[in-house]
Computed example of a mutant assay.
Amino acid sequence: MKPAFDPVTLAIPFFVLAIVLEIILARLGKAKAAYETKDAATSLLMGLGSSIAGLFTAGLIFGASVWVYQHRLFDIPMTAIWAWVVIFFAEDLTYYWFHRISHERRFWWASHVNHHSSQHYNLTTALRQTWTGGVAGTWLLWLPLSFIGFPPAMVAIQKGISLVYQFWIHTEAVKRMPRWFEAVFNTPSHHRVHHARNARYLDANYAGILIIWDRLFGTFTPELDEEPPRYGLVRNLGGFNLFHVAFHEWIGIGKDLMKARSPREVAGYLFGPPGWSPDGSRDTSATLKAKWRARTGQGG
């Protein structure tokens, strides 16, 4: 269930116009933007499918949020300016940890990986969203905000504001923002790093709106002009089948669980980092970065 004021729904016309504008500017040679018809269509259809899939878990999420809010610690009014300031920071910090967990633990990566599956980086990539996020339960991370006392509608609105903000950073058309802005906010430059499959850039820049969390928790990596980001997955899918894009990692988990020989292996395949294997024969982000450092002599 959505709040009466839904930033994402209101922003849809802006999304469409911005995508069309980016395509036109790229065709005219006025902006950097690589588009492939099948890739862009996949992103748009994944976004549509995500909205439809969300309807199946919306009631559960809304009911859980309301139940938690009924047991809240404090009464926080939606009309107070200070409350919106606090929820802005609190929700953004929650998003950082959701995003980080979604990269570092395979079970939640399975519902997030599709967002990174495009080998292009343009505004349609922002719309390539999960079909299984509700089932994966990442929404549970936002329940403590309602337990503290923020009304569920307030939390939902701020989540929507964050999603709308993150749309514009999925572009190569903007090289750098002013230095002060780059220091505080998530930007196209920071988020290009996040979508890159270069070993240098793996598992970095998890920010939603504020890049300060990455700087604070040691996950910030700057974009370097001498090493342009290469987009997609470490092992790209090689196709545009919607169901493969949406479910391939879940299928991979299932196959691995079928051959697990101990509870330790079950736990590793489910909650270890993506790429985990009992004998260490498969690469994880950590091993890929270690190999890169050994090869280039870069520091840790």
Rank of each mutant, 00 (worst) to 15 (best):
F150K: 05
A156E: 00
I157F: 07
I157M: 01
K159A: 14
I161E: 04
V164S: 08
V164M: 06
Y165N: 07
Y165M: 06
F167C: 08
H170C: 12
E172G: 05
E172I: 13
E172R: 14
A173Q: 09
V174K: 05
K175V: 08
R176K: 15
M177K: 06
M177T: 08
W180G: 02
E182M: 00
A183S: 14
A183C: 04
A183R: 10
V184L: 02
T187M: 09
P188N: 09
S189R: 07
H191T: 01
H191L: 05
V193F: 07
H194K: 05
H195S: 01
H195N: 03
H195L: 01
A196T: 06
A196F: 06
N198W: 13
N198C: 10
A199I: 11
A199F: 10
R200C: 07
Y201K: 04
Y201T: 04
L202F: 13
D203G: 10
D203R: 03
A204H: 01
N205I: 06
N205T: 02
G208N: 07
G208K: 04
I209Q: 03
L210D: 01
I212D: 02
L216E: 05
F217N: 07
F217P: 04
G218K: 08
G218T: 08
T219K: 09
T219M: 15
T219N: 10
T219L: 11
T219R: 14
F220V: 04
T221F: 00
T221D: 12
T221Y: 13
E223N: 09
L224H: 15
D225I: 14
P228L: 10
P228K: 14
P229V: 09
P229W: 04
Y231A: 05
Y231T: 06
L233F: 06
L233D: 10
V234F: 11
R235E: 12
R235L: 13
N236E: 14
N236I: 07
N236A: 10
L237M: 11
G239S: 10
L242M: 04
L242E: 05
L242K: 13
F243A: 12
F243Y: 14
H244G: 10
H244A: 14
V245W: 05
V245N: 11
F247R: 00
F247A: 12
E249L: 03
W250M: 09
W250A: 00
G252L: 04
G252V: 00
I253R: 11
G254L: 03
D256H: 11
D256L: 12
M258C: 13
M258K: 15
K259C: 11
A260C: 00
A260P: 01
R261D: 01
R261Q: 12
S262V: 06
S262C: 10
S262P: 03
S262G: 10
P263Y: 08
P263N: 03
P263C: 05
P263M: 01
P263R: 03
E265L: 04
V266E: 03
V266K: 00
F271T: 02
F271R: 02
G272M: 02
P273R: 14
P274H: 14
P274G: 13
P274A: 10
G275E: 02
W276D: 00
W276T: 01
D279A: 15
